[in-house]
Design a protein around this nucleic acid. Structure first.
Length: 295
RNA sequence: GCCGCGGUAGCUCACUGGUAGAGCAUCUCUCUGAAAAAGAGAAAGUAGUCGGUUCGAUUCCGACCCGCGGCA
């Protein structure tokens, strides 16, 4: 018998319809939403990240949206702390937490309760190591922690650097450890490839109609560099390129559509191997599963 | 009509007289403090068509078809 507090997770690829389902269920089941989205945490990035509007939210409180400035760094661990906090507060009010989003790493940090090694990123170290060739970094890691090196691909500098960062402080990279805090019901929404592509296209069109380009212009005006916008990816990356005259409007739209499709596919590679997920077709199915789970 | 250039993987283009490669796209996968990130692997072509030369042609020659540019 699982005595952990129950929460409901709604996940799926981008443009699947998670927001609308979560609001319907939350209304039905006295819930509040905790967003698990690596971009919605940033203020002033609304259209491009598909944040809920006040109207859509219908009074359902949403957490983990607008928690940092776009210029600030943010990462899973910050997310995890804030999300644990938000979830616990909701539970304390005797309400039902809904963890809703499409950032798999963020989602699973809560679902599986990843225990991170407690070594904070060191930007200067990363910058320094970034300059070095992959071979050299890999050799360095091999000396520090051969076991970890074995698990990594030499060319994946980013991972190799993080492992060096950890191993330098702890002597080695600790084994993975999970400590899930909640009993999660996983509800997934998915569509055929064709349908999803159409949904992505339609949503993009809507976002452009709503002045998404202006949003990116404003971000840059308020001090977010082109490089940062590039890093944010997808709409921010492509609109930034367009605003710098690096691509035409047509190229921007085409590439963006394609990149979002690829993103959706990457999200699905996480989800499709997780057999805890109940794939639901509609609200009724979801509601039934949720009610059974809560009883 | 003439002259030139081109026609090779879905796209853009290499190479070579001994039956073909790259980048991007596609598909699959990895993922524990950058994750809308980072990395790995796989599949894919009767080389425009038809002839000729050759032991052997995608590569050389000819004709034709198609595209682009120039000249009339």
């Amino acid at each position: 018998m699982n005595k952990k507090p129950k929460i409901i997770v709604i996940l799926g690829p981008t443009a699947a319809g998670k927001t609308s389902l979560s609001i319907k269920l939350a209304k039905e089941l006295n819930g509040e939403v905790v967003s698990a989205d690596s971009r919605q945490v940033y203020k002033d990035m609304d259209l491009g990240t598909g944040k809920v509007t006040e109207e859509e939210a219908q009074g359902i409180p949403h957490h983990l949206i607008d928690v940092v400035e776009p210029e600030e760094d943010f990462n899973v661990v910050q997310f995890q702390e804030l999300a644990y906090d938000a979830i616990d507060k909701i539970l304390n009010k005797n309400k039902l937490p809904f963890l809703v989003g499409g950032s798999p790493f963020y989602l699973y940090s809560i679902i599986d309760g990843y225990v991170f090694p407690g070594v904070a990123p060191k930007p200067e170290l990363r910058e320094k190591l970034q300059e070095k060739p992959a071979d050299e970094l890999y050799e360095k890691l091999k000396k520090l922690d051969p076991e970890r090196a074995e698990e990594l691909e030499k060319n994946n500098k980013r991972r190799v650097i993080r492992s060096i960062e950890i191993a330098q402080e702890l002597g080695e990279v600790p084994d993975l450890e999970n400590n899930p805090r909640y009993n999660c019901l996983l509800l997934g929404i998915k569509h055929s490839r064709e349908v999803l592509k159409k949904r992505i296209a339609k949503r993009l069109e809507k976002r452009f109609d709503k002045c998404m380009i202006q949003e990116v212009k404003d971000l840059h005006k308020q001090g977010v560099s082109w490089e940062q916008l590039e890093e944010f990816g997808l709409e921010y990356r492509w609109i930034a390129r367009f605003l710098q005259d690096k691509v035409t409007k047509e190229e921007m739209k085409e590439s963006l559509q394609k990149d979002i499709e690829q993103f959706a596919k990457r999200q699905m590679t996480w989800f499709k191997k997780d057999d805890r997920i109940h794939w639901v077709e509609n609200k009724q199915e979801a509601e039934e599963l949720a009610k059974n789970f809560l009883n």
